[in-house]
Design a protein around this nucleic acid. Sequence first.
DNA 1: ACTGTTCGTTGCAACGTTGTACTGCGAGCG
DNA 2: CGCTCGCAGTACAACGTTGCAACGAACAGT
Lengths: 337, 337
Amino acid sequence: MDVRLRDVAERAAVSVKTVSNVVNGSPRVAPDTRSRVQQVIEELGYRPNLSARHLRQGRTGTIAFAVPDLNVPYFSELASSVIAEAKQRSVTVLIEDTGGDRAMESTIAQGFSSSLIDGVILSPLALRRADLARTGRVPLVLLGERDYAKAIDHVVIDNVAAAREATTHLLELGRNRIAVIGVDDQETGRQRVIGYREALAARGIPAEAELMPVTGGFTRAAGAEVMRRLLALPEPPDAVFCFNDLLALGAQRVLLASGRRVPGDVAIVGFDDIEDGRYATPSLTTVAPDKTQIARLAVTLLLDRIETAEPGRQPVLAQAGHELVIRESTSANRTKE
Amino acid sequence: MDVRLRDVAERAAVSVKTVSNVVNGSPRVAPDTRSRVQQVIEELGYRPNLSARHLRQGRTGTIAFAVPDLNVPYFSELASSVIAEAKQRSVTVLIEDTGGDRAMESTIAQGFSSSLIDGVILSPLALRRADLARTGRVPLVLLGERDYAKAIDHVVIDNVAAAREATTHLLELGRNRIAVIGVDDQETGRQRVIGYREALAARGIPAEAELMPVTGGFTRAAGAEVMRRLLALPEPPDAVFCFNDLLALGAQRVLLASGRRVPGDVAIVGFDDIEDGRYATPSLTTVAPDKTQIARLAVTLLLDRIETAEPGRQPVLAQAGHELVIRESTSANRTKE
DNA sequence: ACTGTTCGTTGCAACGTTGTACTGCGAGCG
DNA sequence: CGCTCGCAGTACAACGTTGCAACGAACAGT
């Protein structure tokens, strides 16, 4: 049904291999032969059969990008960046939604659909170190966790510094009862807590456990729920630092609904810089990881790892930049209301 | 490097073909042979090489889902549904982001990466009828447009009825200067305008051109911009019906920033039922298309079309359900504030 | 006992591509 | 003038899988 190399070859009166050479830009082709073949390719509308090519080459030119939840804006934005970056290098991206499920993440880390993909970029949520023990079937790059001991490439941001900057910003506004929302048993959260504590410590303010409640999930609902608990404290916070923007938006909604003013009564800082935060009322101050850079680093590391499959290669830890973007939820001058 | 059928066959002392039969669940295999082969498969961790399988079968088991912008929550939510639905039928989904670019959409409709995919589900934004003239390379299902004459399967919702319901809801609140945001030159918008007009006409209210400004894009920014223009009218609207939730959120932000109350001064209805709308302040009344059903219909139609490749098959128009979800942005009883 | 049928299994070929090794040919050189 | 060399182009095999046709063995029916 489809046009094959063979069809082109017959029409152009050359061998199949010569057509293949033209398609692949091999230098061993005379200019006039090349142009003649090119023309026939146009005429017949030839497209290489990728399955055949990949079977022959042992590569598929496809990488997977696995995220916990595609509906979380941070991940969909990151996915767009990864797709764009991969496209520049003529690589196709398969988006996989793990649902934050540990078994699923573990399967993916081991190369799941196997021969369909050359490598995996995985943004883990529930993955444990033990799950990575049996990796190696497929080149792997992890996003956003750094404590896995095994020889696996990572792309991270400096969570400690970012959290410190966010907290310091709130301190500079004169707030001193700063709650954090988003503490769980994962490494990322742990690092952000460290940064938070460092910022407090620098001003001699003690970190209080009641201001660091454990949070279940990273949704607006979770943010709302925790915010309600914080407001019920004898001495509620005058600022909250949320470990992602969804938590922050959920918290903000509760604050506004309770009649409090943001940032007048409670200032809010989020994390991720998702688009929603820019259009919330008030718009959300947030730590903005450089998603473009993260995507570029991840794709680069993965393709490098695919190229040089030697096991001796040292794992790389790449750090992407971040930036504190100050918007209305922490601006001293209120918007009119 | 990888385990092949041949390796399994040698270890189990059967032919390659028998192993293949076991893998594919062919009935012509003796029970004890089957279990023996199964065991060796487990032992060696055999995974079929999909490139080879697909080369042989002429199918890849992969479909593409192309959306204008993966960062638009409606599309990412829809993508999740499509992925889930496809997974149930052991089909892999390739997410493609067209950027709403007409050339890109046209390319995809013609089967772009060719032999990598068996079919395409396309949610067009800028596509014109002419672009579909040269389709047919690849089975195609279109989402959300209905006026393409060619024999192409469609999945739609009843936009006219949905818009009528939304408008009627606003009328029942006692609003009579109802603006619409999201009018452009596309078919979907045109249908929603029809529904809007019908609802007005049913009450003898004339549709005013100044309340139906043309909108560029479906972003929060566009919604904000149009809302500002509407507020500058000599007689501003007391309700707005937005053709998607992002427009509505942008409009709502402008309203709140200008000191107006929602829904007190201006009521808002959106469209799409994205998660953001549920957690906005106030939460957003919206028309909720049944995304799960849309995904199921689209995947079903596409797979049917792939199965029976006969060109004589009639195109199918499948209609998915929708529902008006009433939340705070049109609720009579205000939240405390 | 012999033919016919069924069942489990097998070998072969092919899917479309590309790497390797090779051929034929003209140019350059001694 | 013959030999070598470089270059354009070619033939063949192989990647891992599955459809097809064929095979032998077991068994039922005559």
